[in-house]
């Protein structure tokens, strides 16, 4: 473990990381935003789920540096008297949770399908790839809208508020798996013909073992790159769905929901309700995108 860490810090990847200040900044931003939202309970000044902490009469206070602003509400309050900074922290938690888990699930589905299709070939491959083609021809946002509609339709009304996050995760991961599947499949088809796989087949190792122990580690590089970029996309997709009103409810808001609610106040002068969550969203996505971009270039030996 220590050995591999040492090798990592001595390696090209670490060097290319350190030599680009923007990437370092992006990494720091991402890490601190993830940290702040994971520990929102401790970091945020208020618990937005505890309604007794808020007073309606505190509503619509501007950020602290403006007239009427209060130091207790650094970035102001929203229409319900909730502290905007706290809603952003809790909101990023929802956005990141949805983004993170939908990428993980999409990755799991995609890797599995890709490995199976690439290794088996034949009609299994044909069927799986046809499905992938069909899905790839539809924009993710439309698929996510559809899946979201179907799942929330199947759930009883009552459960929708609590389960909204899981519905979103399912919808986004089901619309994102194809890219992984395609990438893994093509790498697998290459790996399959290599000697080490043939050797494993000859000594009679079971198929799953070959797939997951031997081939998988060799196709993970591109998968990780896609995952980073898709994390950013997933966060945007979640925000868009929530903005269109099919995402999470305002009582347990994500960044997209906050922007949608705040949009009502854009013309009335209470810009902070929508601008701060909007900024948080853009900064988060931008930081993740910069990381993904860098990772892709760094892992692509041709561009070095």
């Amino acid at each position: 473990m220590i050995d591999s860490l040492r090798r990592f810090f001595a390696g090209d990847l670490w060097w290319s990381f350190r030599s680009s200040p923007i990437v370092v900044l992006a990494a720091m931003t991402t890490v601190s935003m993830v940290f702040a939202s994971v520990f929102a309970n401790f970091v945020a000044p208020y618990d937005i789920f505890d309604l007794t902490q808020f007073n309606l009469m505190d509503g619509l206070k501007p950020p602290f540096w403006m007239e009427r602003g209060e130091i207790g509400f650094l970035l102001g309050t929203d229409d319900q008297g909730r502290d905007v900074l706290s809603t952003i922290l809790y909101g990023s938690r929802v956005s990141l949770t949805v983004g993170f888990f939908s990428v993980i699930f999409a990755m799991l589905i995609g890797i599995f399908v890709g490995l199976v299709a690439g290794y088996s070939g034949g009609w299994i491959d044909a069927v799986l790839m046809r499905i992938a083609d069909v899905q790839l021809s539809f924009p993710a946002i439309l698929i996510a809208l559809l899946v979201d509609g179907i799942i929330s339709g199947l759930l009883p009304d009552q459960a929708q508020g609590e389960l909204a996050i899981y519905v979103l995760i399912a919808a986004i991961s089901l619309s994102f798996w194809v890219q992984y599947a395609r990438t893994v499949r093509s790498s697998t088809m290459v790996e399959r013909t290599k000697e080490y796989v043939q050797a494993a087949q000859v000594i009679g190792l079971p198929k799953p073992l070959i797939l997951f122990r031997h081939i998988l580690p060799n196709v993970m590089g591109p998968v990780l790159v896609i995952a980073t970029i898709q994390l950013a996309l997933a966060i945007i997709t979640e925000a868009t769905l929530s903005f269109l009103g099919v995402g999470v409810p305002p009582t347990s808001p994500s960044l997209g929901t906050l922007i949608r609610v705040g949009n009502d106040y854009l013309f009335s002068g209470e810009w902070w309700i929508t601008v701060f969550p909007g900024l948080a969203l853009v900064i988060l996505v931008l930081a993740v995108n910069i990381l993904g971009d860098w990772l892709r270039d760094a892992l692509n030996p041709k561009l070095r």
Binding site: L51, T52, F54, L56, Q80, G81, D157, Q158, Q160, G161, P249, P250, T251
Partner: peptide
């Protein structure tokens, strides 16, 4: 939402749909 907040202060929990 505001009604839910006010009822929370007298101990009634509202699940808002």
């Amino acid at each position: 939402q505001a009604v839910a907040g006010m009822l929370a202060k007298v101990g009634v929990t509202i699940d808002l749909l």
